Each structure stands twice: as C-alpha cells, then as structure tokens.
Computed example of a mutant assay.
Amino acid sequence: MRKKLLIGLSLVSLLALGGCSANSKESTSKVKHVGVLQLVQHPSLDKSYTGFKKGLKEGGYVEGKNVKFDYQNAQNSQDNLKSMSDKLVKDRPDLLLGIATPAAQSLANATTTIPTVVTAVTDLKAAKLVKSNEKPGGNITGTHDMGPIEKQVELLLSIVPKAKKIGIMYNAGESNSKIQADRALKVLKKAGVEAVVKTANSTNDVQQATETLASSTDGIYIPTDNTFASAAEIIGKVAKEKKIPVVAGAVDQVKTGGLATLGIDFEEIGVQTGRMAAKILDGKAKPADIPVEAPKTLKLYVNKEMAQALGINPTSIKAPK
C-alpha cells in the first residue's frame, strides 16, 4: 500500500513539474523581442525612442514584463549601421524599430520579412521603404517627421523681414535632409530671397559652415538633419557670437542652438509608432496594411535665452498663419 502511495505521489510530482514547465514556456513565449537601431544620439532621436516605449506600453507591452529590447546605436557610422542591422536580423526578433532614415534603410536592406516600424524618417516613399504612404505593401510602416517647411521658412523671414540672403545648412549625405532643403529653396525663391547653401558631411565641419553663413547671410535655416542636430550646441554658440537668427526643423534643435521653430514633437511621433508596433505584436495588423502616419502635433517654440542674446523680443515671434 505504501509502495503504491509513493508511486502515486511521484506521478503527481512529475505532472506538477510538467505543468510548471509548460507554464514557464507559455510565459516565456509571451515576452516579445524588439530590435532597435538608432542612427545617432541626439535629443530628437532619443525622444523618439522614449515615445516608442510609451506607445508600446499603452498597447500593453511593458519592458521587463512582456517585452525586451535589443538597442543598438550606430553613432552615425555607415559601417556600424550595416553590422548592427545584420546582428539584429540574425537574432530573429518579433519586431524591428528603425530610428532616422539611414537606420531604417539599413534594416530594410537586411530583411524583407521581419515586421519593421520606423520613425524620424522624413519621407518613407522617397527613401524606398514603402510603396505608398497609404498602402506600404511590404514589411515596413511607421511615422514621418516632415515638418511644415514652408511655414518654418516663413517664420524665419518674419523675424528678418528685410533679409536679402538666407543660409541653408544640411548634410548632403542624408537624403531626408536634401528633400527638406530643396523645399526650403523653393520657398525662398518664391519670396525673392537669395539662398546660400552650405553642407557638412560630419559634425567636425559644422562650425565652419555655420561661421561662413553667419558672416554672409541675414538668417539661417536648418532642416531636421541628424548631423547638424548632433552639433546644435556649436551652432548656438556661433549664432550668439554673430547675432544671427537660426530657425531649425525640430524643437530640440532650437532648445540647444536656435532661435525658433514651428516644429515636431519627436516624442509624440515615437508614441504614434509604438501604438502601431503594439498592433503588429498583437497580430491584429501587418505593416503592409498600416498607413504611414504624419505628426499629429506641431508647436511654436521660441528659445528665450537666444532671443535675449540676439536682442529680439521673444513675444514678437508669432507662428505664420
């Protein structure tokens, strides 16, 4: 009788262990793996990632509970972009996130099957990431950061209404920046203002480009360019010394080194992207069928400290109608 009892207890124990194993496996399977590739570290892109996590959390995915992240920062290196993309894809995550156009393109080159969302990308179609914004058609969707460039240039011209020359600075190696710069050129041409363009391939060239334009123009416009955003402090220092107003494409650029902008909230577009990602991880939608989203919020931001340094009343700066 005792022998039968021992056998019975052993069977119960085995079944219990089996159940625990099954539960553990089920629990593990619920943890989603998200691979993240960010082009470079600067406030706008950092906030995009912060917002992405918030958007995922809204959708029920909490870091340390049911989602884990493999975060890679390429520090603006093409070699790093490729090697990091290959590593992330090799690990077969449930989802990929690309932050900034070059990072998104690098992931697109690495996989056509793993669901991917992107943010802080100026034009997904022009970057050949989607077939169309309405119907992406592949494994990629996300949010774009194309700001109101016409309004931003108008803002600068309202600050310097007698301007004869306006400088434009960007990295010609970033396709997203060239798209914006070309649009800004058209606005200036229409306004009858001469444009002077300076490009920089790295942050090491930013100071010289800024000093050159600050000495030869009445104001400077900078699109949402990652190279110049990374060197915003340098730009701000030159702007103060030369008493030159700078309007940039993003609020964070202006906070550090500009005068004003009608700009994008990068954290908010990150949140929008996170919400998309949650739907994909839930299995409720596929990137191919999720339309690309535009920024939902824009705001006028004036750097009061910079305005004071330039002798401008910050309350005199108004958003164009």
Rank of each mutant, 00 (worst) to 15 (best):
L11P: 00
V12L: 12
V12D: 01
S13L: 15
L14D: 10
L14F: 10
L17T: 14
G18E: 14
G18P: 00
S21Y: 12
A22Q: 10
S27R: 15
S27V: 14
K30T: 12
V31I: 15
V36H: 06
V40R: 07
Y49R: 12
L56N: 10
L56K: 08
G60Y: 07
K65D: 09
V67N: 03
V67Y: 04
V67I: 15
K68C: 05
A74C: 02
S77M: 11
Q78V: 14
N80S: 11
N80P: 03
L81W: 08
S83W: 08
S83E: 08
S85G: 06
D86R: 09
V89K: 05
K90A: 15
D91T: 15
D94N: 11
L97A: 06
G98M: 08
G98H: 06
P102W: 10
A108I: 04
T111E: 02
T112V: 07
T113L: 00
T113F: 01
T113V: 10
I114D: 09
I114A: 04
T116C: 01
V117S: 03
V118Y: 04
T122A: 00
T122N: 03
L124Y: 04
A126Y: 05
A126P: 02
L129Q: 07
K131N: 12
S132K: 04
S132D: 07
S132C: 03
N133V: 13
E134Y: 01
P136K: 10
I140E: 00
T141P: 00
T141K: 02
H144E: 15
G147I: 11
E150L: 01
K151A: 08
V153R: 02
E154Y: 06
L155F: 05
L157C: 06
A163S: 10
K164L: 09
K165R: 15
I166H: 01
Y170A: 08
K186I: 08
K186R: 07
L188P: 01
A191K: 14
E194F: 02
E194N: 11
K198G: 04
K198M: 10
T199R: 06
T203W: 00
T203G: 03
V206E: 09
V206D: 03
Q208A: 14
A209P: 01
T212M: 02
T212W: 00
A214C: 07
T217M: 02
D218I: 12
D218W: 02
T224A: 08
N226G: 06
T227V: 14
A229E: 06
A229K: 08
A231W: 05
E233Y: 06
I235T: 14
G236H: 08
A239E: 07
P245T: 15
V246D: 06
V246K: 12
G249V: 11
T256C: 00
G257F: 00
G258W: 04
L259T: 13
T261W: 02
T261S: 02
T273A: 06
A277S: 05
A294Y: 12
K296Y: 03
K296H: 10
L298H: 11
Y301V: 12
K304C: 01
A307W: 07
A307V: 13
A307H: 10
L310W: 07
G311M: 09
I312D: 08
